[in-house]
Structure formats: C-alpha cells, structure tokens
Nucleic acid binder design. Structure first.
Length: 297
DNA sequence: TCGCAGGTGGTCG
DNA sequence: CGACCACCTGCG
C-alpha cells in the first residue's frame, strides 16, 4: 500500500506547527520536513508544499500530500485524512477573531500560524495523555512506542511500509487488551506510577465504554483537569477546551500578568476571552512559549 | 546530586 | 475546599 492523496489550495498549514505543538506523540520529522506517523491504525507521510516558497511558514496557500503507507482499506479514503487534518476548517477566520484587540494572541499566532488541531482517536488520546502527565516529551514518545510494540497489533498492509522506522509499525493496544494485564506485565514499558492509572482506566472503559462527556472523562483514574481538557480537545472535538499546563501557566504569567498558581483565574479568563475558540488559543500560546524557551537555550 | 518534565491522588488543616 | 506532597523515570 502506497497511495498518494493530494489536497490543493490549503491555507494555514505547516507540518512543524501541527506535529510539534504537543497534540500528538506518534509523528516523526523526516529530513525533508515532512512527517511520518500514525492516525489511528493508518501509517502515512504528510508533506506540505507552499506555492509561495518565500512566505513565512503557515502563511502561504499550498498543497498537502498524504502518502498512505499502511493500514486498513479505508486508510486511503481522502475524507478520513481531510477530517484528521481538519482541512475543512477556516483557520484564517479563527486567527482573525483571536487576534482582534489582543497583541499577545497576535504574536503567538505569528509564531504558530500553521497549527491545525488534529481529530484523533479517543482511546489513543486517553492513553497518550495519561502517560503525558508530569513527564517529558521524549520519554512520553518512548513509553507510547514501547506500549504499542509490546502489546499492540501489527498494522495492516505494513509490507508497504518497509524502510519506515520500525518504531511505528504497531497500533496501541485497546482497552480490552490493557484491562487484562497486570502492572508487572507492563513493567518493561516503564510508565512508572502511571501504569496503575492506565490499567484502571482500561478496565473502566472495557466495562462501561468510552467516556462521552467531561464528567465521565474526569471520573477516570489518572485523569485530572489538565489531562481531561487535552482528551476533550484532541479526542472529542471539544474545541473550547483550554488545557492549562506548565507552559500555558508560564505564558499567561509572562504575557497577561497572572500569578503562575492562579489556574482558576486563567481558566475564567480563557473562557471569557477565547470562548469557543479556547482550544485553538491554547495551541498557539503553547507553541509560542515553547519556541521562546527554545531560543533562550 | 538534584531538579525538572505537558499532573494527579491522597491527606491535612 | 485549598494548600501541600509523594510519585516512576531519565536527562542535564
């Protein structure tokens, strides 16, 4: 399997912004600036060619190419990828609304103008963000790959993916599979104390089904306010969610003058200032402050 | 050696 | 309630 899907006339799109803004953990940058990774159980390479090569990243109309490398039959369905990459949404309008009368957002958007919020699989989002807590990104990625490698299913049609990194040739294990495991089985994955959270959550989901709202989400073990907001935003399409992590606390303190411990104040501010666009605002701010931190080192 | 990394659950006052 | 604090693991 190796078919190329082409989407013409796409605006507000940049692979680095999209795959490195902290929303996903199974996409890896290639030499040419494209990204290879998994959307559910489909393996693909995503590249963007701006028509205006001199334009700043995320500011030029261009072509998105999706080379589907492995997965089930419907992995080659353009509609699936259009939905996953959120191509049907007008990010220009979102950015205009957010930056109106807000110089901070204007600056943040300039830094990550090609961000798009991916429409990810709910269960994978739950697993990923339980693992992400009090953890760093390289180790989060390692944990997720070890979990897939040790307990997931091989990708369908993976023979077409020969030569791709061996890391991403398996899907994450589903709730039923994880529910049948003991903590000691998962020891090689080195999740630390998150092992218990994951197994308990898997058992809960295997028994009662996937969560359908914030309340059911928050009842899961290892899912506090921050993780719940991430899952809602990335896995349930709740684009008004505003996850407050250490980076958002930093940027809100630095740019809006909040006390770093004042999460309630920040949440209230986000609700009234960004409203239904809270999730987009959070992604721009997150990418912006992490980029600043990068420059300081 | 120690603090920190995309927090949460448990325990106090 | 709200303010602590321990917690796996790995890296600088």
């Amino acid at each position: 399997m190796s078919r190329e899907l082409i989407f013409e006339g796409v605006r507000d799109f940049d692979c680095d912004h999209i795959f490195d803004c902290g929303q996903c953990f199974r996409w890896y940058r290639e030499e040419d600036g494209s990204y290879t990774g998994l959307a559910g159980c489909a393996l693909a390479n995503v590249a963007f060619e701006p028509h205006d090569r001199d334009a700043a990243p995320g500011f030029s109309e261009g072509t998105v190419r999706v080379r589907v490398l492995a997965g089930p039959e419907d992995a080659e369905d353009p509609a699936l990828w259009s939905r996953y990459l959120d191509l049907g949404r007008d990010y220009g309008a979102i950015k205009a609304r957010l930056s109106a009368d807000d110089p901070v957002m204007e600056q943040a958007i300039a830094a990550g103008s090609g961000i798009r919020i991916l429409d990810q699989d709910l269960w994978e989002t739950i697993v990923s963000f339980i693992i992400s807590q009090n953890n760093n990104i390289p180790r989060i990625k390692g944990c997720i790959e070890r979990l897939a490698d040790g307990f997931g299913e091989p990708l369908e049609g993976a023979e077409g993916a020969r030569g791709q990194r061996a890391l991403i040739l398996k899907t994450l294990p589903g709730p039923e599979r994880l529910a049948g495991l003991e903590a000691e089985d998962l020891a090689p994955v080195r999740l630390g104390y998150r092992t218990r959270y994951l197994v308990e959550t898997a058992r809960c989901v295997a028994e009662k089904g996937l969560p359908r709202n914030m309340e059911e989400l928050s009842s899961l073990c290892g899912v506090g306010p921050k993780v719940a907001n991430c899952i809602a935003l990335f896995g349930m399409g709740k684009r008004d969610s505003f996850p407050i992590d250490v980076w958002v606390r930093r940027v809100m303190a630095k740019c809006y003058g909040f006390d770093e411990g004042d999460m309630k104040g920040m949440a209230g501010f986000a609700r009234s200032r960004y409203g239904e666009l809270g999730g987009y605002a959070q992604q721009y701010l997150f990418y912006y402050i992490r980029g600043l931190d990068e420059k300081n080192r």
